[in-house]
Nucleic acid binder design. Sequence first.
RNA 1: GUGGCUAUAGCUCAGUUGGUUAGAGCACGAGAUUGUGAUUCUCGGGGUCGCGGGUUCGAGUCCCGUUAGCCACCCCA
Length: 454
Amino acid sequence: MPEATPRVPGQHVLQPPTGTRDFYPIELARLRFIQDAWRRTSITHGFQEIDGPTFEHLDLYTIKSGEGIVSELFSFERFQGEKRFALRPEFTPTLARLYASKAASLPKPTKWFWMQNCFRAERPQRGRLREFCQWNCDILGTEPIGSPDQEPEAMARMDAEIIATCVAGLEKLGLKPSDVKVKIGHRAAVVHMLTAGGCPLDKIDAGLAWLDTYLKVEEPKFRGAGAALGLSSGAIDQLIGVLFKGAQGEPPPAARRVLELVTELGIGDWCVFDYSIVRGLAYYTGMVFEVHEASGAERAIAGGGRYDKLIELFGGPSTPAVGFGMGDVVLSLVLQDRGLMPSDKQIARELGLRPDVVVISNGSGESDAAVTPTLAALRKAGLHARRPYKATKNIGKLLKDAADQDAQYAMILEDGGMVTIKDMDKNVQRPEKAKLAEVVGSVRVYLPVGGLSG
RNA sequence: GUGGCUAUAGCUCAGUUGGUUAGAGCACGAGAUUGUGAUUCUCGGGGUCGCGGGUUCGAGUCCCGUUAGCCACCCCA
């Protein structure tokens, strides 16, 4: 007797892997709503969309971040001697690769955006998942300059443009300066203070990392570590005062021009200079910024800055570059916190998912038979047409079904080739029945949709 | 990788010192009222009580393990 082995799926195949999400229609519509704002913002600001592979050679990531990064990656290798690969944890290395290999033929500046999923092997928590969607905008190079002394101005313009694009994306989703703050910092200013205080040039990266620990360790320990970097006691006092206690109100000269330009671009009230924003990453070289929820809730919504040495590191020509990244996870939380995530119905409307018309039979055999050809004709005319999948012949329930689907019109098929058309938004129907053939022949007259109705 | 909390229907939750066949509201489906998005009424589908083991005559309930989620560390491109 053959063994009966019921294939009962274990729970591990019923649940998505840790830190990943299933997107049912509603959830996917919310993601698309955000992506739609990102994409339109990118395009109106002159960026072109690019993409690369979902996985890269593992080396691509260790070049920039060292071997230590490997534990944060989903990496894998094939058995037959191929190299090791990793799912992309971010897009910047791919971007640098793309730019470096075609740099000579690309316009100056090159403005690219990217919007796809990334993977990081971290323990999930609020605002952090193992798979998420990220929006990146980058400006590679600057507009042509006549002489080297114009370079700071050219770079400041790109810096401001990047910040403005980031802000525009947030604004498109309904956020206001009272909801979020763009904190702008500048590496150069902090590096200058470190070197002036006695920190040797080859320890600057360590010095920036040290400053990043201020809020996490006891002050004596912090001061001890600072002294080990060669900093005098007075220099440490000054750094603490300026970065964390707001002792210096004036932004440094290096950042001043960017702040002027963001004001010119009309987003000055979103931005504030903050010395303590240095960003942990070693590759930032100038302006850096982070976007936070105004009350400090949630993680950073977005972050970015200038990385002028990175393209070179990936084998390209020396190219100044600036960009930012924004993830969907924290952004969604902030939109919810602020009550800015529209209703499912509103999102469906904005994404163009709303049905134009639902075709209802009056219940006679003749009308029942006419539903399918009518649907086909309306769809051929370009409408989003549906029919109820209900067994009832109760017109009230069928209209309710049409209303539940947020249809703009209901069309009731009557005997003798006639139809009743009801405008669901206005809750009125045409006093006269119309001829079905005529309606199908002139749908725009009888069923004005797409913003044509008044 | 470390710790804390949590897990019952699609959702929000009941479920007594351990005791019959695990319930309610909402949602969903069908029907009734000559055909207009409402109300009401009737009926119905739905549950591996996260999963696995243990204690017990008997476990949704007690114990152990495990998985997932949330939160905090680490980290945060």
